[in-house]
């Protein structure tokens, strides 16, 4: 791998795996514990914009994959190795007792993203200031975005159970 940023990341952190992402992005796979240090490193390197935190439920592998997309506010993004490229930071957490360190200490904007992921996937973020519900109004036994959440069954159990109004009675 000839990517200068990738080389530096590889030298600084243990267990970092580099993949070439799509659209000239740099994909970095790190262990769960290294999320915050790598984010701090990248922020000091000029990545001041955390575009989003996403989550993928790999139910067959029994793990969630958290995806952090980092970019710049001030500099123009140039794709490809050697340019100013966006970074996809990926980390996996196990599905059982899922928890991950919070990124709010590095990027304040992580707060709503992590709340949303907590609400929809049930991942606990250690040290997050307020993991209260963000959008949802109901309690779900299985968080609704997990792959084992059966929406059709849920709709049949909850919304279709409500009887129509008997107007004649």
């Amino acid at each position: 791998m000839t990517n200068p940023l990738g080389t530096r990341l590889d030298a600084t952190f243990k267990g970092v795996e580099l993949r070439s992402g799509v659209d000239g992005r740099l994909a970095v796979v790190v262990p769960r514990e290294a999320i915050v240090p790598v984010l701090t490193f990248l922020k000091e390197d000029g990545y001041d914009y955390l575009q989003l935190i996403s989550c993928v439920d790999w139910i067959d592998r029994g793990e969630f994959e958290l995806v952090y997309l980092l970019s710049f506010y001030t500099e123009e993004v140039v794709g490809g190795d050697g340019g100013k490229q966006e970074v996809l930071l990926k980390a996996t957490v196990p599905r059982e007792q899922a928890s991950a360190p919070t990124a709010t200490s590095v990027f304040a904007i992580a707060e709503p993203h992590e709340r949303e992921i907590h609400e929809l996937y049930g991942i606990h973020f250690e040290g997050h200031p307020r993991l209260t519900p963000l959008f949802l109004d109901r309690n779900y036994e299985i968080p609704p975005f997990r792959k084992d959440f059966d929406t059709k069954q849920y709709v049949a159990d909850v919304f279709d159970r409500v009887p129509p109004i008997d107007e004649e009675g």
Binding site: D137, T151, Y154, V155
Partner: peptide, 20 residues
């Protein structure tokens, strides 16, 4: 009847069950 959100986890499907 819920339209394209008929199997969504968070949208009620038939409004006339709740208000006329």
């Amino acid at each position: 009847n819920g339209g394209m959100y008929w199997d969504s986890y968070n949208t009620i499907n038939q409004l006339d069950k709740y208000i006329p």
